[in-house]
């Protein structure tokens, strides 16, 4: 199944959700991503990814409180599911494994 692999952006979003703990809703996720990556996260893109992650069962959402600035609309909070945790851990392991076998000199001094 395609869903077991994470795309790069998906991984970032998943990590952000995890880092935000109880404050992970779409706008906050977008802001956080922007802060860390330096690139503007478009609301539409973030939403699409969140939707996809939820479809894959990596995150779960629930409706929270409403604020005046949102025109009385409730926020949708995301949290990482067990499958999500497995997925990011696996992704990290894959990377770490690859990092470990890179010879030290190979990334130094190259143009």
């Amino acid at each position: 199944m395609k869903g077991t692999n994470l795309g790069e952006f998906e991984e970032l979003v998943l990590l952000t959700i995890a880092s935000l703990v109880n404050e992970a809703y779409s706008v906050a996720i977008g802001d956080e991503l922007e802060k860390h990556t330096g690139r503007a996260a478009k609301l539409g893109v973030v939403h699409a990814v969140l939707n996809r992650l939820e479809e894959k069962g990596l995150v779960i959402s629930s409706l929270g409180e409403a604020t005046r600035i949102r025109g009385g609309k409730r926020k949708r909070y995301y949290s990482v599911t067990h499958a999500g945790k497995v997925a990011i851990t696996k992704a990290k392991e894959v990377r770490d494994g690859l990092w470990r076998i890179i010879p030290g000199f190979n990334l130094e001094g190259s143009t």
């Binding site: 609301l43 939403h47 939707n51 409706l63 600035i69 949102r70 025109g71």
Partner: peptide, 15 residues
């Protein structure tokens, strides 16, 4: 099911 959240986000960005 998506509308409320979406609309809220858009409102927040708009503000």
């Amino acid at each position: 099911d998506l509308l409320e959240d979406l609309e809220g986000d858009l409102n927040e960005y708009y503000a």
